[in-house]
Nucleic acid binder design. Structure first.
Length: 852
RNA sequence: GCCGAGGUGGCGAAACUGGCAGACGCACAGGACUUAAAAUCCUGUGGUCCUAUGGACCGUGCGGGUUCGAUCCCCGCCCUCGGCACCA
């Protein structure tokens, strides 16, 4: 018996799997498919044990499904574009591609040493022109359908680096690299019209019943659907006959409109400049507006600045009351939400209330609560906070007396028939700005021509490849804009001189459809063959970090709907089931290079082997929970594997190498039957824990119990491994029954361990004399008759407190159970002198004796 | 503030449909083996108490409730984590 040597067996089997290409798959119509997907990786350099937890969970599921007869697609690839590569290039005076390819090579090696069963033949990297070509193709399709469009918008500009920063790169208002204060700057930007799908994305959430609630809630909030009304307030223009001006407001509480005592505009509202021009002291007016506009953007968005405003001196007509109300400018009104203007109802909105009190504006109560402890009517002069709850309308003209229930919808329609407004739905979701003034991304395939305007690059000219660049300085505009050979081109329409678009796409574009590309990764004529994608998709199981709950998972759902509209796919949602795995912590903190608490998988593989690492990360906590890393825990998992190794290798000479005795024909003793029962109960438990529950940790527990049971069994039968030296001595004379049940148990153990510890299982499976790898073996079947307990232990309670445990036959009748329980001495002791009013008997499960 | 998830031994956790709380592992303690140690194997391990090979009581964040019976369901509160947050 040799020692467990993970290094040797892991290399042996990894080589064999690769040579035999066992994880490569093709469509097999008629065979059930299973698409198991883990979020692809950003090639940042080195994967740590936190990153790879995700991959291990996916691998357990993929391997288990494979053994259960599914045609399993389990691919991997690289989210290879993005800023860190460009920054590394600037720092090392190198090229982003060099850094990226090196990192991919290193990380791929790390994953391969973990023995993950990827179909590497489908590997893709988004920085491959063969991939991003299809980003461009899709962009053009979207451009044709007006889903992709260009408009001016405000971006973060770093004056120190003379470049645009992504929102994530602005740290507390400053540039993450040089610390300069970031300025807003207006630029022409490309957008994808995701808002066109806002309702579809929201409605689709209802069908995602195998996604975590947490993620669905986050998506709902992110989309932020809000039903209300758009209402027009006409501004007093003074002179009769002067052109009228309207302020449109969006409100969800049009039922309170009769209490609207003023109107507020965002400082960026288009009317503000005009009002300033027309003001008596235009300069002072404008100065105050500028003050608001220059307030820190994020502070304004998060409400960190104090609510302030000033009177424009203008008035507008409340279309429901006909009253003239002042128009104010307020710093907390957001230009980018709704219409950039709101009606203020101080009595029924807390923000408006505070604002009104601060500037002594009138507070007009139009809703009176109908329930509540104190039924004192609200009074605008004395109330101390706004009342936003339900009630009955007062001082609301023809609407007075209505309940707030349904009033908003009714009054929105009333506004429409009056011609002063209409019902409207607003979304928090914004169109997706995809322009990046960066090099290391997909070039946007558009040509700007002075005579023809924006022209799409013809499909046959795709891909627009990234041009070679000698040195990355990080200075100046978009790197592509500095390359005349790239920029200068001819117009595809008029052949005149024209300029290429120099923005590249947000990398979230790359990751929004990579899972379709896996299905047909080397297609050169289209993004993918719809038939091949139709076979594999939707993704059955998707595993990744919860940090992608919003962006990536909404963008992918959006792309899915676009692809469907393009006729490329047939399903509505890309991911049937989603699991968000917990992070791996060390010393209570998320692993990160900067904290210096990362654990390198290679180091752990070197010490304990990949199988121990895989087992540890799947056993120690449920997949969706955080995992606190401990070296001792990993060592425990390693110990378990050595225990399995000793057990199986010691039992090998005992169990028949060539054929297994037929259990059906053998008469078994009680202890043989007990081991079989444990074996089959373990099959039932592990199978259910893995699928559909994905409770990997309890599945491992069940396997540990089976091993413990096997050790006890071997001890009772004077067998290895406990009585090591006696193994050889008695090995050949072991009773056939013992050999048979042992063989079954050990085979089962090795099979069910295979998803977790594939190398160890392969090696032991081979040593047990089985031809063909464990990968191609079938998952064991539970025989319910064998698994059935033939004796039960039924707990007996008196008044809900456990007083006895009764060993009874498994087919015991309720009457017998009741009688046996009542006869039990401890039950009699606790019921002595009391009247028994009831005896609850739960069939085969429990007896509860209730006394008066 | 709103929404979501959670709170169980010294620690990670388990308990699937309201039915024996703490499976499995870590740590710790005792024992076997050994010249010794490591490794391995075995045993024990929620708390308090007692007349102690047995037994009593308490125990799943806190307080109530429903129920024969509650970690699980209901009401109120506390705490932790995550998300959203001046969205009109």
């Amino acid at each position: 018996m040799s020692d467990y040597n993970p290094k040797f067996i892991e290399q042996k089997w990894q080589r064999r799997w690769t040579d035999q290409r066992v994880f490569e798959v093709r469509e097999e119509p008629g065979r059930p498919k299973y698409y198991c997907l883990v979020m692809f990786a950003y090639p940042s350099g080195h994967a740590h044990v936190g990153h790879v937890r995700n991959y291990m969970i996916g691998d357990v599921i993929a391997r288990m499904k494979r053994m259960r007869g599914f045609n399993v697609l389990h691919p991997f690839g690289w989210d290879a574009f993005g800023l860190p590569a460009e920054n590394a290039a600037i720092k090392h005076k190198s090229h982003p591609e060099i850094w990226t390819r090196e990192n991919i090579a290193h990380m791929k090696g790390q994953l391969q040493r973990l023995g993950i069963s990827y179909a590497w033949d489908r590997e893709l990297a988004t920085c491959d022109a063969s991939y991003y070509k299809w980003n461009q193709w899709l962009f053009l399709k979207m451009f044709e359908r007006d889903i992709a469009y260009r408009r001016r918008s405000t971006v973060n500009w770093c004056p120190g680096c003379s470049t645009v920063l992504a929102n994530e790169q602005v740290v507390e208002g400053g540039c993450w690299r040089c610390g300069s204060v970031v300025e807003p700057r207006d630029l022409e930007q490309w957008f994808l019209r995701i808002t066109q799908y806002a309702d579809a994305l929201l409605d689709g959430i209802g069908g995602l019943d195998e996604w975590p609630d947490k993620v669905l809630t986050m998506q709902r909030n992110w989309i932020g659907r809000s039903e209300g009304a758009r209402v027009r307030f006409s501004v007093d223009v003074g002179d009769e006959g002067a052109e009228s001006i309207d302020i449109e407001v969006f409100t969800t509480r049009i039922d309170t409109i009769c209490g609207a005592t003023f109107v507020m505009l965002a400082p960026e509202h288009p009317l503000v400049d005009r009002f300033a021009d027309e003001a008596s002291d235009a300069a002072a007016f404008l100065k105050r507006v500028q003050q608001f506009r220059s307030q820190d953007r994020t502070d304004r968005l998060t409400g960190a600045v104090e609510k302030e405003g000033f009177d424009t001196g203008r008035t507008a007509i409340n279309p429901f009351t006909g009253q003239s109300v002042p128009v104010w400018i307020a710093n907390f009104v957001l230009a980018e939400y709704g219409t950039g203007a709101v009606m203020a109802v101080p009595a029924h909105d807390q923000r408006d209330f505070e604002f009104a009190r601060k500037y002594q504006l009138p507070v007009e109560v139009v809703i009176q609560p109908e329930t509540g402890v104190e039924m004192i009517p609200l009074d605008g002069a004395s109330m101390e906070e706004a009342y936003a709850g339900p009630g009955r309308l007062v001082n609301s003209g023809e609407f007075t007396g209505r309940s707030t229930e349904g009033a908003a919808a009714f009054m929105a329609l009333a506004a429409e028939s009056k011609g002063v407004g209409r019902p409207e739905v607003q979304f928090r979701l914004k169109d997706w700005g995809i322009s990046r003034q960066r090099y290391w991304g997909t070039p946007i395939p558009i040509i700007h021509c002075d005579t023809c305007g924006q022209q799409p690059v013809p499909y046959e000219d795709l891909p627009v490849e990234l041009p070679a660049v000698d040195e990355f300085t990080g200075r100046g505009d978009s790197p592509l804009a500095q390359i005349p050979e790239f920029v200068n081109t001819s117009c595809p329409s008029c052949q005149g001189p024209a300029r290429r678009e120099t923005d590249t796409m947000d990398t979230f574009v790359d990751s929004s459809w990579y899972f379709y590309r896996y299905c047909d990764a080397d297609n050169e004529t289209q993004p993918f063959d719809p038939d091949r994608v139709d076979y594999w998709t939707p993704v059955d199981f998707y595993i990744g970090g919860v940090e992608h709950a919003i962006l990536h998972l909404i963008y992918s759902r959006f792309f899915c709907k676009v692809f469907k509209d393009l006729g490329q796919i047939s399903h509505d949602e890309p991911f049937t089931r989603l699991l968000t795995q917990g992070m791996v912590l060390r010393d209570g903190a998320v692993m990160s290079k900067s904290k210096g608490n990362v654990v390198d998988p290679d180091e752990m593989i070197g010490r304990y082997g990949a199988d121990a690492l895989r087992l540890y990360e799947t056993f120690v906590a449920p997949p969706e929970k955080e995992l606190e890393w401990t070296d001792a825990g990993l060592e425990g998992s390693y110990r378990f594997l050595t225990r399995v190794w000793r057990l199986v290798t010691a039992v090998c000479p005992v169990v028949d190498q060539v054929s297994r005795p037929d259990l059906a024909t053998l008469r078994l003793d009680d202890d043989h039957r007990a081991l079989r029962r444990k074996t089959h109960q373990s099959i039932r438990r592990v199978s259910a824990d893995l699928d559909p529950r994905v409770h990997l940790n309890t599945a491992v527990s069940a396997l540990m119990e089976l091993v413990n049971e096997l050790y006890l069994f071997c001890d009772q039968h004077n067998l290895a491994p406990r009585s090591v030296n006696r193994a050889e001595e008695f090995g050949t004379v072991v009773a056939v029954q013992t050999r048979a049940v042992l063989a079954e148990a050990v085979d089962t153990l090795v099979l069910m361990l295979a998803p977790f510890t594939p190398h160890l299982s392969e090696e032991l499976w081979e040593q047990l004399g089985h031809p063909g790898g464990v990968i191609t073996a079938d998952w064991p079947e539970c025989d319910p008759i064998v698994a059935k307990d033939d004796a039960l232990v039924v707990p007996v309670q008196v008044n809900g407190k456990l007083r006895a445990r009764l060993p009874v036959a498994s087919d015991v009748s309720d009457e017998d159970l009741r009688a046996t329980a009542l006869a039990e001495p401890s039950v009699q002791l606790h019921t002595k002198g009391k009247e028994i009013v009831r005896v609850v008997v739960v069939k085969r499960k429990l007896v509860n004796v209730v006394t008066a």
